[in-house]
């Protein structure tokens, strides 16, 4: 993972790994260009198909390991959706499961050395988060009509405070997609950049290099944890927002 030393001095390029590159040929990156983004997203899709379609193709009543993993993931997300949003949130389960499984696999694939982390890009996570934001807002208005605005009117607070609280609630509502996306991208970007910085220190010498390599190992372990937790957090926040849309009363 360590970059080669350019001309003698220390070379930290912690952000090179996030570069979007053409896979074939030269030229500008158009919207349809096949890039490393395309490749790693396709690998994620392939892994998902491998786990959830090929892995469960036997439909065994007594599952093997792959099918067991697929069923565990299914049960995990299903329970989460049911617990947080209630029974009427179940019909959005495929959508939430799509988000969860895509983020989970992108995060984990990004941890492979030399790989590209699609979810470390603001563009990707912002689309994910704004998709959630618009979906949830539309569902809220379709299901509840104008009563959805009751979400911002905290009826349990004293009357004098309610307008102020309403302003705060509205602001926090619109900040949701921003924090939702930046949390995911920022966590992954920070983790991967720190890994690269530690890897850069591994060039330094006999004394610092072992420490740096141990640091890489430790940070890598932390990043494995963070990958899973961030996928979980993104999903559960989606469920919480969906619950707000389905039951806007505080």
């Amino acid at each position: 993972m360590a970059d080669p030393v350019d001309g003698g001095g220390l070379s930290f390029k912690p952000l090179d790994q996030f570069e979007v590159k053409r896979l074939f040929g030269e030229g500008p990156i158009e919207w349809y260009t096949i890039t490393n983004v395309t490749m790693w997203m396709a690998i994620a899709v392939a892994c998902i198909v491998l786990l959830l379609v090929i892995g469960t193709s036997k439909r065994a009543v007594v599952p093997n390991r792959t099918q067991s993993v697929a069923e565990t993931l299914y049960g995990f997300v299903y329970t989460m959706v049911e617990d947080v949003t209630g029974k009427d949130g179940i019909k959005y389960f495929p959508y939430i499961f799509t988000l969860f499984i895509f983020i989970l696999f992108s995060n984990f694939l990004g941890l492979l050395p030399m790989s590209f982390t699609t979810t470390s890009h603001i563009a990707v996570t912002a689309i994910l988060a704004f998709a959630v934001f618009f979906t949830v807002t539309i569902i809220g208005f379709v299901k509840n009509g104008a009563a959805f605005l009751g979400l911002f009117w905290v009826s349990s607070a004293p009357l004098a405070l309610r307008p102020i609280l309403a302003v705060i609630e509205v602001i926090s509502y619109f900040v949701r997609p921003v924090s939702h996306s930046i949390r995911l991208a920022g966590n992954l970007m920070a983790g991967h950049a720190v890994l690269k910085v530690f890897a850069g220190f591994a060039q330094v010498g006999l004394i610092i290099a072992p420490v740096a390599i141990l640091g890489v190992v430790a940070i890598y372990a932390l990043e494995v944890l963070v990958s899973a937790i961030q996928a979980y957090v993104f999903t559960i926040l989606t469920c919480v927002y969906l619950k707000d849309a389905l039951h806007p009363s505080h």
Partner: peptide, 21 residues
């Protein structure tokens, strides 16, 4: 300059995953 590319492929990926799932 890379945003349209990423967004396009992300949408393709999400639709594919959603349909498969």
């Amino acid at each position: 300059s890379t945003f349209p590319n990423q967004i396009f492929w992300l949408l393709v990926t999400l639709v594919v995953i959603y349909l498969i799932l």
